[in-house]
């Protein structure tokens, strides 16, 4: 049994949560313009990372809110928990070490998805 820390409710048993798969998959910006291949990627292709994986969970038996988590898919260790709309810690670090440090802030939810339509699928 895994123990997850809901950003709203704190540590709870895994059974109180439901899995939502890979995080940060953006809905295509112009769905009408996608090729069959791009649609296939959006619908059916997800990362299947061995190692650190950013994924979504919902605290279905508690506050019923979705959140993101970085978990090691080999050891199952939880490395980070962050809210929907916030950037993945790894992305934050990457931005922080880049030349414009002032960008290293979580973005407002509406802008927060770090992936573009074409890379995020």
């Amino acid at each position: 049994m895994l123990l997850f820390t809901c950003p709203n409710c704190g540590p709870r048993n895994e059974t109180e949560f439901h899995y939502g798969g890979q995080a940060h998959v953006a809905y295509p910006e112009s769905p009408g313009e996608l090729s069959d291949r791009e649609w296939a990627e959006y619908l059916f292709y997800r990362e299947n990372t061995k190692g650190l994986f950013a994924e979504r969970w919902v605290h279905s038996a508690g506050c019923r809110k979705w959140f993101n988590m970085v978990r090691d898919t080999v050891s199952y260790e939880v490395k980070a928990v962050y809210r929907i709309g916030e950037l993945q810690p790894e992305t934050l670090e990457r931005i922080a070490s880049a030349t414009e440090p002032e960008q290293a802030q979580p973005l407002a939810p509406a802008q927060a998805n770090p992936t573009t339509a074409s890379e995020g699928v």
Partner: peptide, 13 residues
């Protein structure tokens, strides 16, 4: 088990 995993083990529930 619901989550992605390469650990060759799952949860007891």
């Amino acid at each position: 088990d619901s989550y992605n995993g390469y650990g060759q083990r799952g949860s007891f529930h």
